[in-house]
Amino acid sequence: MTFKDLIEKNKCRVFHLESELENQKVVNVIAGDLMSEVLVEDEENLLLITSLNSEQVLNTANIVDAACVLLVNGKTPQAPMIKMAENFGISLLSTDLPMFEACKSIEN
């Protein structure tokens, strides 16, 4: 599935989208709320799924070169987070689905 499919299927709200990401496939995914766990990850071009709605999510995403952050549980990012996403070149999405369902939707 591509990021475009992900956005459509999960009815994501798009806060920032890097143009080249849309047609890329979702390959490496990590889901969780503890950022230290994300920092252990070695994969690149990650999709990070989290319910944590804070600037630390984008700091962490940038440190591990993640491509996209998907906020779950209908979280709406604040303006500084959107700004960081733009600066770091990390796409920022949000879905109303909980994390479990968001993960499931990608696997299918």
Partner: peptide, 12 residues
């Protein structure tokens, strides 16, 4: 396994 993989496996 991580949370993503486990969620997918149980989801299935």
């Amino acid at each position: 396994k991580n949370q993503f993989t486990v969620s997918c496996e149980i989801g299935a």
